[in-house]
Write a protein that binds this DNA or RNA. Structure first.
Length: 410
DNA sequence: CTTCCACAGGAAGGTCTGGCGG
DNA sequence: CCGCCAGACCTTCCTGTGGAAG
């Protein structure tokens, strides 16, 4: 019996030829509509092949604009070209969201050179300047140019590392270092130490968002590689592209939509992806996002969210709730579960956070004589949100609470 | 035109936690 | 182990304000 559990799923033939190419981490051999950026980076890094130090680069762009893919692609090509020409070039990629302290960054870079007659640097224990010294020593031995990519560099704790890395070259004889910083925050450099700022931002690149047509090209290319013949309805790719273009031209979003749509089609037991799968994929991705966000909210924020839901229930959705109404419901709910209530000022901020997370909308309006406030309403499904909130032991069932307060005389 | 509601949202400061260097 | 500091989280106090009512 157990042995047959999966056989029925495997029996129906998959529509995928190679699903891997739909993941974000996959880097194709051709990156459509990024030729300009590729050439620009390549022209800067080319000096590495002449044995000179390439300028440091800063790359900006929103999520899904190809920053990481382009950089890794150029890095791969550079490494290959360096080998051919007998000029040693090293390419170290670090995601600063994962590796976010000075010590671990240096350790990561240093461990890249392992295997060339050197010992491993331990996770912890060494003074930072000793790791730094060791790194220099290793780079001297390895020779050549080291290109260090710091992805999501704005997530770094402190700019000391950036300063030290930008100074690397002054203490090196046989090796050169060049740093590429990637960020989706345009204002990131404003907060940097001016010394770091000037040395890091020798070259600046901005990656613009893709438009719908460009997204379509990207998806066409991936679909070719990912799917078997005749598994795709014609309008699917344009629809995915259109949705993703609305979302600031995010290629990652386009790929996710497409992949989820394909998975849904497969789960339906179909041999073909059609339009409705894309719409369902859109819903599923959105629902997953909301579920995850709501689930991880702090208790007080959950309580505010519940207050808004309770408020909407008694208002019957005629007029949106105001801050004052939400606050009085919130206070009542808080005391009913025995949680200390926060001040209205604080609740104002929590509502703003919920707004930014996209689970409620709150916009300032004026009611003239009757003051200025914000109209607050749920922007996600009340039922689904309630379902997620019910997972919280402390707050279970609270969203169905009937408050004693009469909020408004209508 | 002025008034004045019901907040928005800035500034500053308090408390607590957790990491880090000595 | 201790003192220090940064950052998250809140409070207190405050000034500012769009527009219906008067």
């Amino acid at each position: 019996m157990t042995r047959d559990l999966f056989s029925s799923f495997l029996a129906s033939e998959s529509i995928f030829k190679n699903k891997e190419v739909l993941r974000h981490s996959y880097i194709p051999d051709v990156l459509p509509h990024r030729e300009e950026q590729i050439n620009e980076i390549a022209s800067i890094l080319a000096s590495a092949l002449r044995g000179e130090t390439p300028s440091n680069i800063f790359i900006y762009g929103k999520t899904g604009t190809g920053k990481t893919a382009v950089t890794r692609y150029v890095g791969k090509e550079l490494h290959r070209a360096g080998k051919e020409k007998g000029k040693p070039t090293h390419f170290v990629y670090i995601n600063c969201e994962v590796v976010d302290t000075q010590y671990r960054i240096l350790q990561n870079i240093a461990n890249h050179f392992i295997g060339e007659w050197t010992e491993r640097i331990p996770f912890t224990g060494w003074p930072t300047d000793e790791v730094y010294a060791k790194l220099r020593e290793m780079m001297e031995k390895a020779r050549g140019v080291v290109v260090i990519v710091l992805d999501e560099v704005d997530k770094l704790k402190g700019d000391e590392v950036l300063y030290n890395l930008s100074r690397l070259n002054t203490d090196l004889d046989n090796a050169k270092a060049s740093v590429i910083g990637i960020s989706n925050d345009l204002k990131f450099t404003e907060f940097l130490d001016p010394r770091v700022k000037s040395s890091m931002g020798e070259e600046n690149l901005i990656f613009p968002p893709y438009n719908a047509d460009q997204l379509k090209d990207i998806l066409d290319q991936r679909a070719q590689m990912a799917l078997k013949e005749n598994t795709l309805d014609e309008p699917v790719v344009p629809l995915c592209s259109a949705y993703a273009a609305q979302e600031h031209g995010d290629a990652r979003r386009a790929l996710d939509l497409f992949r989820v749509a394909a998975e849904l089609a497969e789960r339906d037991g179909l041999k073909r992806i059609v339009e409705k799968h894309v719409r369902r994929a859109q819903n599923k991705i959105e629902l997953d996002r909301v579920t995850e966000v709501v689930r991880t909210l702090p208790t007080q924020s959950k309580l505010v969210l519940i207050s808004i839901i309770v408020g909407e229930r008694i208002q019957d959705n005629i007029t949106p709730l105001t801050t004052g109404e939400v606050y009085s419901i919130y206070k009542e709910l808080a005391s009913s579960v025995g949680i200390d209530h926060l001040t209205q000022r604080r609740i104002t901020d929590l509502v703003s956070e919920l707004d930014m997370l996209g689970i409620v909308t709150a916009r300032v309006i004026s009611k003239g004589r009757y003051g200025r406030t914000r109209h607050i309403r749920m922007s996600t499904s009340i039922d689904k949100t309630t379902e997620v909130l019910d997972e919280d032991d402390l707050l279970r069932g609270l969203a169905r609470y009937r408050p004693k307060i009469q909020t408004r005389l209508l």
